[in-house]
């Protein structure tokens, strides 16, 4: 088991290297640079800035410098937030994003599987149609529409919740963003659960359980365990995406997470900041895919790692 984990993590290193390399050169080839402001800087200052950040060196040397820094855990300075290193920015933002995304993830798993099971047990009846319609709404309404609408209703008309801000992570500030973030995921998980649950309920071994007169509750729970397998494999990428922050939610609700850095960094050519977020996201994807595979082994005895 431990050997398997180690082997997988080692196996991910080449993947990570490819990602870092591709991202590095892609953003460098892109036109523009971090100091190309609307009003051009005097050439002398520009030159100094480039020299200070070693951006005047040949690209390949910058690349090896960056990789070298990465190996020692140094993500470099941010070119736009000049008083901070990328490391500091991520350290501040990541816990906020993880907290928000983690809560949304848990909510989505709990509510999504419950709704999906509920619908599957009432296939094609009113309850099923109702749940699936709501799920469809969750999938089709973009979160940047949902967020202002919810703000309008709960913050401005009813005045129950704050319209935005992080409030040092107070519960009341989290409600709207967590819900908005979780809604599409609830919908997807509910649909996935329903689909695979219907399939499992039709399986031969469920018929065996019924033939043996097991209580319906037990039959359902046993079937759910099998039905969750496809949901689990969906959760890997979904969790990585949720935990690394959402640009939309963070912008609309004014939350200091890392989702914004990614887009802002790319648009401002803040090379190191973009690279920092890319590395973070790729790491999350690798780790969560591994976690999913391990969880799979727990759920499905046929999968073994030794």
């Amino acid at each position: 088991m431990l050997r398997y984990v180690l082997r997988r993590l080692l196996g991910a290193l080449p993947t990570l290297l490819v990602i870092v390399t591709v991202a590095f050169f892609l953003i460098r080839v892109a036109p523009g640079g971090p100091f190309n402001l609307e009003r051009p800087l005097p050439p002398q200052i520009m030159e100094n800035l480039l020299a200070y950040y070693q951006l005047d060196q040949p690209l390949w040397r910058q690349y090896f410098n960056y990789i070298g820094g990465l190996l020692t855990g140094d993500l470099g300075p941010s070119y736009v937030y000049r008083d901070f290193t990328v490391d500091q920015l991520l350290r501040q933002g990541l816990p906020v994003s993880i907290q928000l995304g983690g809560t949304a993830l848990l909510l989505a798993i709990g509510v999504g599987t419950a709704l999906g099971t509920f619908a599957a047990l009432r296939q094609n009846r009113a309850g099923d149609v109702g749940v699936m319609t709501v799920a469809m709404v969750g999938i089709t309404i973009p979160n940047f529409v949902m967020a202002p609408v919810l703000t309008l209703i709960f913050a401005i008309w009813l005045g129950w919740l704050p319209a935005g801000g992080w409030g040092e992570g107070a519960l009341i500030n989290k409600l709207l963003p967590v819900f908005t973030l979780a809604l599409p995921q609830i919908a997807v998980i509910a649909r996935l659960t329903r689909g695979s649950m219907i399939e499992v309920l039709r399986a031969d071994h469920v018929r065996t359980a019924r033939a043996n007169g097991l209580p319906p509750r037990v039959v359902t729970l046993r079937a759910l365990r099998g039905a969750l397998l496809p949901v689990v494999s969906y959760l890997g990428p979904a969790a990585a995406a949720l935990l690394t922050g959402s640009v939309v939610i963070e912008t609309i609700f004014g939350i200091p997470g890392i989702g914004r850095y990614f887009v802002q960094g790319a648009l401002n050519r803040d090379y190191t900041l973009v690279m920092g977020t890319v590395v973070t996201i790729a790491l999350f994807i690798v780790v969560f895919n591994l976690l999913v595979d391990l969880l799979y082994a727990v759920l499905d005895p046929k999968v073994r790692y030794d």
């Binding site: 993947t15 990602i19 648009l267 994807i285 690798v286």
Partner: peptide
């Protein structure tokens, strides 16, 4: 698999830039 691990949004934003 490698392409999967690349952050999708990064690509899209780079495309806009290009």
């Amino acid at each position: 698999d490698v392409l999967y691990s690349l952050p999708f949004m990064f690509f899209v934003i780079m495309l806009v830039v290009f």
